[in-house]
C-alpha cells in the first residue's frame, strides 16, 4: 500500500469536511478498498473512516420503509429481519468476518458489477441518501463501478420500501463468492421489479420484460416465453454470456417461486 492518513470523524458534517481534501476517499468496512490498496491500484491521500459516525449506524423501520444507516454492516442487516429478503441477501455476502466489517454504503458506492446490494436497491426502488441529496436507485447506478455520486459525496443511509414479497437468488461465482448471476425480485404495490447483478457489462440492470410479465402474473411460469439476450453480458473464465443469460432466467424463476 502507498501510505495515507486516516481520519475518523464522529459526525456526517465532519466526514464531509474531511472528504474535502484532494484524493480523500471514504472508508466503509474496507473489505474491497483495502485489498485494492494492497495491490497499489489506488493512492488516496487520506482515508475517511466512517465507522465512528454514529448517525450512519443502525436500522429503523418507519411504516413500510426501512432506513439503513450507511455504515451499517452486512451482519447487522442480516440480523435485522424487518425486510426478510434483504436480510437473507446480506447474510450471504462474502463470509462472516467480511460481513462483520463490510457496509451497505461501501457496497453501493463501489457498485461492483457482481455485488449483491445493488440488485436489492434497484429491485426495491430504494433511495440512496447522501450528505447532500437523495438519489433514486434508478438514477444512481450508472454502469460497472460507476454511480451518480459526486466527488467527496458520502452515502449516509439507504431507504428501502418493503415490498409485499421479495426474494434474492444468487448463483455464486465459486472463487470470489460474488454473484455469477444474482436476481432480486420485488413485488411492490405498483408492480414487480426485477434487478440482475453479476451478469452484465453494464453492471446491475432491470429486466423489464420480466417485470411486465410478473406484474400481470407473479409466478415463474409467467417467464416461460421470455428470454434474455446475451448481448453485453459478461464472458469470463467462470461462464459465457450465453450461460449468464440463461441463468438470469433460471434465477428469476426461482426468486419468484421463493417469494410467492
Amino acid at each position: 500500500m502507498y501510505d495515507f492518513d486516516v481520519e475518523k470523524p464522529g459526525t456526517i458534517a465532519e466526514a464531509a469536511t474531511a472528504m474535502g481534501v484532494e484524493d480523500a476517499q471514504a472508508l466503509g468496512g474496507g473489505q474491497t478498498l483495502i485489498p485494492t490498496l494492497k495491490q497499489r491500484l489506488a493512492s488516496p491521500s487520506k482515508l475517511v473512516s466512517l465507522s465512528s459516525v454514529a448517525e450512519m449506524q443502525g436500522i429503523t423501520k418507519e411504516g413500510d420503509t426501512l432506513r439503513i444507516g450507511g455504515a451499517t454492516t452486512h451482519a447487522a442487516v442480516a440480523a435485522d429481519g424487518s425486510y426478510p429478503a434483504l436480510s437473507a441477501l446480506a447474510s450471504n455476502i462474502g463470509d462472516p468476518a467480511v460481513r462483520n466489517r463490510g457496509t451497505i454504503a461501501g457496497s453501493l458506492a463501489n457498485n461492483d458489477p457482481a455485488a449483491c446490494y445493488p440488485a436489492a436497491a434497484l429491485a426495491s426502488g430504494a433511495t440512496i441518501i447522501t450528505n447532500t441529496r437523495e438519489i433514486a436507485a434508478d438514477d444512481y447506478f450508472q454502469g460497472m463501478f460507476d454511480t451518480a455520486l459526486d466527488e467527496g459525496e458520502i452515502i449516509t443511509a439507504v431507504k428501502f420500501p418493503i415490498p409485499q414479497a421479495a426474494n434474492y437468488q444468487k448463483f455464486v461465482q465459486p472463487a470470489s463468492r460474488f454473484a455469477l448471476v444474482g436476481v432480486f425480485v420485488a413485488k411492490l404495490a405498483d408492480g414487480v421489479r426485477v434487478a440482475v447483478t453479476g451478469a452484465s457489462n453494464e453492471g446491475v440492470f432491470r429486466w423489464t420484460e420480466a417485470e411486465g410479465a410478473l406484474s400481470t402474473d407473479f409466478s415463474a411460469s409467467a417467464l416461460d416465453g421470455l428470454s434474455v439476450s446475451p448481448d453485453n453480458m459478461i464472458t469470463d473464465l467462470h461462464g459465457s454470456a450465453t450461460y449468464r443469460a440463461h441463468l438470469v432466467k433460471v434465477m428469476t424463476g426461482r426468486a419468484v417461486t421463493a417469494a410467492s
Binding site: 486516516v6 474496507g30 473489505q31 483495502i34 473512516s49 465507522s51 451482519a75 462472516p96 468476518a97 467480511v98
Partner: peptide, 15 residues
C-alpha cells in the same frame, strides 16, 4: 467480540 479479517482492517481502525 466479532470475527474480522485482520489483514483487511487498518490498525488505526482498531484504536
Amino acid at each position: 467480540g466479532q470475527a474480522v479479517k485482520s489483514c483487511t482492517m487498518l490498525a488505526a481502525e482498531a484504536d
